[in-house]
Design a protein around this nucleic acid. Structure first.
Lengths: 135, 135
DNA sequence: TATTGACCTTATAGTAGCTTTATAGTTTAA
DNA sequence: TTAAACTATAAAGCTACTATAAGGTCAATA
């Protein structure tokens, strides 16, 4: 299987696959005589794992960490769970921050209708005067 | 006022001020004979505006756009409000996505306790098997 | 006077996670 | 045979800074 087929199979760009290889997330595959990369099913699974982690918002460093656990399957999985717990609390604090931000933006938006000149725009005035009740 | 004083006044790093100048967000200030930048109160206001926009999550490009409206104060402020509306809906969709993600992560986490080996870890198995009910 | 320290200058690189571009060699179908 | 589609590498671009390097300026101190 060549890189384009693998890319299509998993739904990523070929460059992304090379990028993961370069970052040490995918093992370097064998090469044909012409230098083309040849992938096995294992690579497909590895790549799919990476993509699912990315969809879950894990960083490449965190994925790397998970892979190192996979390479040593007889240790307790406490660390895996801890990584996920950390990530969950990270996501939660992002949500909280964004909700506070949304409130701020909505109240700023409420300070203007569309029927003014820029000079008198409530939104611009609000930002300029710093009427920004912090979180 | 020199760059260090301005930086302290507004609460940013000196490099950030030079960066904004380079990006065209702050007008280039006059220079002393020795080449040091000299800032006025106007610059302080401009920088504070930028920072407040950043705190609201606006991109430098969006800030640039707002500045162009400020430079032409007699047009209607519809575009300003539209920019903010776009930003609000962007923030909202981020929140929605993160909430869906949180759900997914929590259910994944629930599939394992800490008392297993990595080999049997429910979290890793969940990711590997792709039991990821998409949004 | 010499030097120390705090400040300023520019230019360059690093961060995350790719994407884009440039340049070039290879394979395959018409 | 020639063009399309694929592959390769290397390097730059994206965002919004932050950090580092190497050096010039200035005031106070020993």
């Amino acid at each position: 299987m060549r890189i384009g087929q693998l890319a299509q199979l998993v739904g990523v760009e070929t460059q992304t696959i090379r990028f993961y290889e370069q970052q040490g997330l995918l093992p370097p595959p064998d090469r044909q005589d012409n230098g083309y990369r040849v992938y096995t099913e294992k690579h497909g699974e590895g790549l799919a794992f990476i993509r699912r982690c990315r969809i879950l918002g894990l960083s490449l460093a965190e994925i790397h960490e998970l892979q190192s656990y996979q390479d040593d399957p007889h240790q307790p999985c406490t660390a895996v769970n801890a990584l996920l717990d950390d990530h969950i609390s990270h996501v939660r604090s992002q949500i909280t921050a964004l909700q506070a931000l949304e409130k701020q933006l909505v109240s700023l938006r409420a300070s203007c209708n569309d029927e003014r000149e820029v000079e008198a725009c409530g939104v611009l005035a609000g930002i300029s005067e710093g009427n920004m009740h912090q979180q």
